[in-house]
Design a protein around this nucleic acid. Structure first.
Lengths: 180, 180
DNA sequence: CAGCCTATGTCAGAATACTGACATGAGTCA
DNA sequence: TGACTCATGTCAGTATTCTGACATAGGCTG
């Protein structure tokens, strides 16, 4: 154990800074989306559907970083507001492709503009180079963590029940990486 | 309004990347902390107390990005496990300073090492310069958002009730700004 | 083709966090 | 000193999300 980094220092810990920034962004987005009648997850859902129409509920869940059960109840509320639509029956298998309704597409445009304004405020102090570095840094972090949990502990592979071990894990993504 | 960025592109949106990285970190930390009997907020609490002993429940709440009500129930569970202690009566005012017990301090050391390992894995692909840039980028983002909600809309200041408008807001950080 | 595995959608219960509201103690200012 | 503002701790109710479990559809392998 190196004595150089004996413990976590919250003032310099990237993890803590990440949580701090994410928390601030969450609050700021919530503040602009709430007047539109949307919470952040609902907005994420609309944005995902705008860019990739026909995604399934499970795919949306992974994209919005929530469990598929949560996404399902969320979709029900969006359906109730006539913002998205799902076919009554699965065209193939059991996957129900979700689509934006015209109302949903319109609301998404408004929400997207509001969120973009928040992002611009967040990045206001950064030049384009710093922005690019931040982007690639975040990508690297997410990628490194999405990789298999090599060391740490066990992970208990053996799936005994149907809902296998980490089958759900809202973390999505799965590139390959390794610790240094 | 630049027409160059008509909408949010999830693949390049810093906000989305931030959420992605934070989500991956959350999952990874949860995976290593759970075997220790801690969730992430509980760990944050122990870490905060290790670095700043005697913090009050409300201060811990802001530091851990949760409401003070949530922090209070969390502290009760930590007290039940004899990991932290609070005086039965406030030494001054109503602020109850929280302290780590020996058991809490010991557990924190173990947890801290585990979390540090996660952070190192997360940063494995970055050199020291990139790490520094990421750190400053995240600081800039958090800072820019914590600043007053200048434009956007309204923000509905008017505090009518006791629990004034944004008095709680688990967003911590800023708190500064107060229109008066 | 049968068996195994994975992924999806769904139901039910539990855990977690938040909002609203209130009383109290401290600091500030006229 | 007295009124006002602010922050803290706390109680109660609500909302959101997660975990566990199950049946079914599709792909893969022997």
């Amino acid at each position: 154990m190196s004595q150089a980094a004996p413990d976590i220092d919250l003032d310099t810990s990237i993890g803590y800074l990440l949580k701090q920034a994410a928390s601030a962004l969450h609050a700021a987005m919530d503040a602009v989306l709430r007047p539109l009648g949307l919470n952040i997850t609902q907005y994420s859902c609309l944005e995902l559907l705008a860019q990739r129409p026909g995604l399934s509920s499970s795919e949306l869940a992974r994209g919005a970083f929530v469990s598929r059960q949560s996404m399902n109840v969320l979709l029900q509320s969006l359906e109730g507001d006539d913002l998205v639509s799902r076919p009554g029956q699965a065209p193939v298998g059991r996957v129900l492709p979700v689509q934006l309704t015209p109302a949903g597409a319109a609301l998404r445009v408004t929400a997207s503009a509001a969120v973009r304004a928040v992002e611009e405020r967040m990045l206001g102090g950064l030049d384009r180079e710093a922005e690019g570095q931040l982007r690639s840094g975040l990508r690297a972090c997410a990628g490194a963590l999405s990789a298999a949990y090599a060391s740490s502990g066990a992970a208990s592979a053996a799936a005994s029940s149907t809902e296998s071990t980490s089958g759900d894990a809202a973390t999505s993504a799965a590139s390959a990486f390794r610790r240094r």
